[in-house]
């Protein structure tokens, strides 16, 4: 495959033409924090954590394709501060209490907080009153722990093809919904495949019957599935 040479933080790296900046970095062992991105799902550039400086302008690494001679900066004070603030905003938005969460210890949001050294939150907590839907026989959606990454929406539409998950309302009222807003247990399109559970980065969509810290997920399954489908 044709190669493109770009600069990341001053170092020249090679990657295949058509790759995103995120893929280019990863191919060369360079880490860029991500949350809404998941291999095997189309990117939407929503979480803004993979924000990098591309030729002097800010852009998301997951949605920007490489060009010859592109200069990318990942590690600057400004970008660190930006990523940390974005993460703080996420923690302040809903009710993320790790200590009694089923995903404690296996949570991508928690991992990011450790990685980015988020030792405090400097924005006002919102403490919203949010619901939990346990009407599905096997799964639970707890909106308190949802980060609106829309992985569930994408996996359901693009991989499973069921289109059960959607997004309703706007601003801080925004929610993931099943079948135009009915309880999950009554969502007729749901095939109960459980892919949304596996791709959800936090303890928002989980299996029933899990106790604190017991919920381990396997989001990498989606990429594997895609790989096998492509191979036929």
């Amino acid at each position: 495959m044709e190669q493109v040479v770009i600069q990341i933080d001053g170092n020249e790296v090679r990657t295949a033409r058509g790759n995103t900046v995120l893929e280019a970095a990863r191919d060369n062992g360079i880490r860029i924090p991500t949350l809404c991105h998941l291999d095997g799902l189309p990117d939407i550039g929503a979480c803004r954590l993979c924000m990098v400086e591309i030729d002097g302008r800010f852009g998301t690494a997951c949605t920007t394709r490489v060009r010859d001679g592109m200069k990318v900066r990942i590690n600057t004070d400004e970008l660190h501060e930006m990523r940390r603030t974005v993460l703080e905003l996420l923690f302040a938005e809903r009710n993320h209490v790790c200590s009694f969460c089923v995903s404690n210890g296996h949570c991508e949001l928690q991992d990011l907080a450790c990685e980015l050294g988020m030792d405090s939150v400097r924005v006002p907590y919102r403490y919203p009153t949010l619901s939990l839907d346990a009407t599905h026989p096997r799964f639970i959606i707890d909106h308190n722990r949802c980060v609106m990454c829309a992985r569930c929406v994408r996996v359901c539409a693009e991989v499973e093809g069921a289109h059960t998950w959607g997004i309703a309302f706007r601003g801080t009222q925004v929610r993931v919904i099943t079948d135009l807003g009915v309880d999950w247990g009554n969502a007729e399109t749901c095939t109960s495949c459980g892919k949304c559970v596996q791709v959800c980065p936090t303890g928002a969509i989980v299996l029933k019957g899990q106790a604190t810290a017991e919920m381990e997920k396997h989001p990498e399954l989606v990429a594997e599935l895609e790989e096998r489908r492509r191979a036929g």
């Binding site: 929503a46 974005v86 996420l90 309302f169 009222q173 925004v174």
Partner: peptide, 11 residues
């Protein structure tokens, strides 16, 4: 705010 990206939605 449409609620898609975090800085706008929560910020």
């Amino acid at each position: 705010s449409c609620g898609k990206c975090i800085p706008c939605r929560v910020g």
